[in-house]
Amino acid sequence: MPEGHSVHRITRQFARNFVGRRVSLSSPQGRFAAGAAQLDGHVMTDARAVGKQMFLEFDNGLWLRVHLGMYGAWDFAGDIIMDATIASSNGRMGQTNQRGTDLGAGAGPDQTAGPVLDSAGENSLHSIGAPRRTRVRMAEQEREIDQLETFPPEPVGQVRVRLLTDTVSADLRGPTACEVLDPAQVDAVMNRLGPDPQLDDTPEAEQRFVDTVRKKPTRIGLLLMDQSVVSGIGNVYRAELLFRAKINPHAPGKSLSEESLRALWRDWAHLLAIGVATGQMMTMDDLDGDAYVLAMKNRADRHWVYKREGLPCRVCGTHITLEEMGARKLYYCPSCQA
């Protein structure tokens, strides 16, 4: 499932390519025909991401809400202007990594020196600035599909909704939610979501997170995945944040100190910003030079505990544990996080 950084990256593509432009909407598969008709021909005026949900506003006061869920993805096609902070080559945008991480040998996380592709052929910064006649897929992974010969392309597969301008199209497949909402309904949905540090990294947002967790007897490993507590955290970030904080995932929220929760919030803001900028859920962010480039190339070198069950902890050597929590796989070190 896409985590928060992916949805913010997709939303920036809409902001760059659709906001301020008149958009035609259709439902090639027919399941969203009535909703598409409500928005068809209107100008997109805003694009927002809150955690794992995206909201597109139109000049008739209505919004399109999309939650990609486990299988959703967006295909962008046409003369795509890639955002400088999330530029990619061509592929799918929706669920973890993107083509084009612009890092070279000796470059750290804040430096650029040339593209580095990971072992899956993905990276995050590649074609910055000028429009490209191409096809880009954004979901959990973001990867190149092909160069575009004709525009608009024929819909491929079960396209729930197509958004089309004179130069760019965006096709949505397999979402958990795709619906038209009025402003009051949008407010109601957003008010149910926890704070998102990409939108609000104020002391008030931090305090809301701390206060909510400290009232709960629920295990912190479950609370971090609860989108009403904090927005955007999924399975990867849950495991990595708790390891970095040396917090036992089974600890009740109310047992944690205010200081430790403030540090957890600040670390989430930090890692989320890296994810939005690079397209990678890079959680070993203290690496330098060749080690950083290696981690960007290989997912196995990018994380402390995620998908490392049975392997020795990078810190203490204890074997990483895998168990189920909240119907999702949980990875942690039973020694470092005792």
Rank of each mutant, 00 (worst) to 15 (best):
P2I: 13
P2C: 13
E3R: 01
E3L: 10
I10G: 05
R16V: 15
R16F: 12
N17H: 14
N17F: 07
G20Y: 12
G20C: 13
S24G: 10
S24A: 14
L25F: 14
S26N: 08
S27D: 03
P28E: 08
P28Y: 07
P28Q: 08
Q29F: 11
G30Y: 10
A33K: 04
A37Y: 00
V50T: 07
L56P: 00
E57D: 09
N60E: 11
L62G: 06
W63F: 14
V66L: 05
L68P: 00
L68V: 02
M70G: 06
D75F: 08
A77H: 00
A84M: 10
T85H: 04
T85R: 08
S88L: 12
N90C: 11
R92G: 09
T96D: 05
N97G: 11
Q98Y: 13
G100V: 10
D110I: 12
D110T: 15
G114P: 06
P115T: 15
L117D: 09
G121L: 06
R133L: 08
R135H: 07
D146E: 09
D146K: 03
D146T: 14
Q147P: 00
L148I: 09
P155E: 03
V156E: 14
V156Y: 03
L163T: 05
D166C: 07
T167P: 02
A170F: 06
L172H: 03
C178Y: 00
V180S: 10
Q185H: 13
V186G: 03
R192S: 15
P195A: 15
P197T: 13
D201G: 10
T202Y: 08
T202Q: 09
A205R: 01
E206H: 10
E206Q: 14
F209R: 01
D211W: 02
D211M: 08
K216I: 14
P217L: 13
I220G: 00
D226S: 08
S231G: 11
G234E: 03
G234M: 07
N235W: 04
V236A: 06
A239Q: 04
R244A: 09
I247R: 01
A251T: 15
P252V: 11
G253K: 03
S255M: 09
L256Y: 04
S257L: 10
E258D: 13
E259C: 08
A263I: 12
L264I: 09
D267M: 15
L271A: 12
A277K: 07
T278E: 01
T283W: 02
T283I: 06
M284F: 05
M284C: 08
D301I: 07
K307F: 05
R308S: 02
C316H: 00
T318A: 12
H319Q: 11
T321N: 00
E323C: 14
A327D: 11
L330S: 05
S335T: 14
